[in-house]
């Protein structure tokens, strides 16, 4: 009798209990990200979209220098690791030679909006038909929590121990707003991944951007306002709350541009 029950359990587990399966596009490697960090979630939904759209064999990714430098250890697609800040130029080189492939870069705020600003802006201005995923955690996670161009005023980091102060350290750089203004950009949006609902919206944005790329619509940028519990020195839960209260007013969630048309009324979700 006990044997029968065991057998039943096996059947149930095998055929009905699978609520989520790791896509082929994610490797077996354990991620090195800190608990609660947004990087892992974005990796996951990006790779889910690539699999759902059946694009594993068509996709080439570019990893940055930053906490996600090892993105290619987790993403099971062909990838190149770029020098710090140069991912957009590397992606341009790939896409120009392979115009029918799907090309994305995955970059942090230091990578994209400080050392790589020129490459970022000019790639957008040329309207390269690529997707740029931009993880804005307002800090340099990898190097131990220094100020990023996106660090908000008053925020303490290891190089702004008294809080970022505008007169000597400048203002938070809203590079996504700037990119949305460029005529060659097609879809520019700001998302987050800190709640299940936010993850769904973000995934939809990724689906849309990849679809646009397939249709040769041109440059798409998805900024993901994200946490860095370690760099911010907060627990994951507290960091998410802090992000909602302090980052979102600076970096409102929602589309900035779609189909090449600027969206003036920004939807602000909490």
């Amino acid at each position: 009798m006990s044997e029968e029950i065991l057998l039943d359990e096996k059947i149930i587990c095998e055929e009905f209990d699978c609520v989520w399966e790791k896509p082929e596009t994610l490797t077996e490697n354990k991620m090195h990200y800190c608990p609660g960090c947004g990087h892992g979630v974005v990796h996951k939904i990006l790779m889910e979209v690539i699999e759902e759209m059946n694009l594993q064999s068509e996709t080439i990714g570019v990893a940055p220098v930053g906490c996600s430098v090892f993105a290619y250890n987790y993403m099971n697609v062909d990838m190149q690791g770029a020098a710090h800040g140069r991912a957009a130029a590397v992606a341009t080189g790939i896409k120009r030679m392979l115009p029918n492939k799907i090309v994305f870069s995955y970059q942090g705020d230091g990578d994209l909006a400080a050392i790589g600003t020129a490459e970022t802006i000019h790639t957008a201005n040329r309207g390269e038909n690529i997707l740029v995923i931009f993880i804005n955690n307002a800090i340099y996670g990898m190097t131990g929590g220094q100020m990023a161009p996106t660090t908000i005023l008053g925020m303490k980091t290891s190089t702004t121990p008294f809080g970022r102060e505008a007169t000597s350290q400048g203002f938070p750089f809203k590079i996504t707003d700037l990119i949305a203004q460029l005529p060659a950009t097609h879809f520019v949006t700001r998302q987050s991944v800190h709640t299940p609902n936010a993850v769904r919206y973000c995934k939809k944005a990724i689906q849309k951007a990849i679809k646009y790329q397939k249709e040769n619509k041109g440059y798409c940028l998805i900024e993901v306002v994200s946490n860095c519990p370690s760099g911010w020195k907060m627990t994951p839960l507290v960091s998410n709350k802090w992000m909602e209260e302090n980052m979102f007013p600076q970096y409102p969630i929602g589309d900035l541009k779609d189909n090449g048309i600027l969206i003036t009324k920004k939807e602000f979700t909490k």
Binding site: I60, V62, Q80, A82, A83, R86, A89, V90, A91, T92, G93, I94, R96, M97, L98, A118, E119, H122
Partner: peptide, 14 residues
């Protein structure tokens, strides 16, 4: 800086 990194990407693409 950009051109040499474009060469990197394009050469890596074969």
């Amino acid at each position: 800086v950009a051109s040499i990194n474009m060469v990197y990407g394009a050469s890596g693409a074969g």
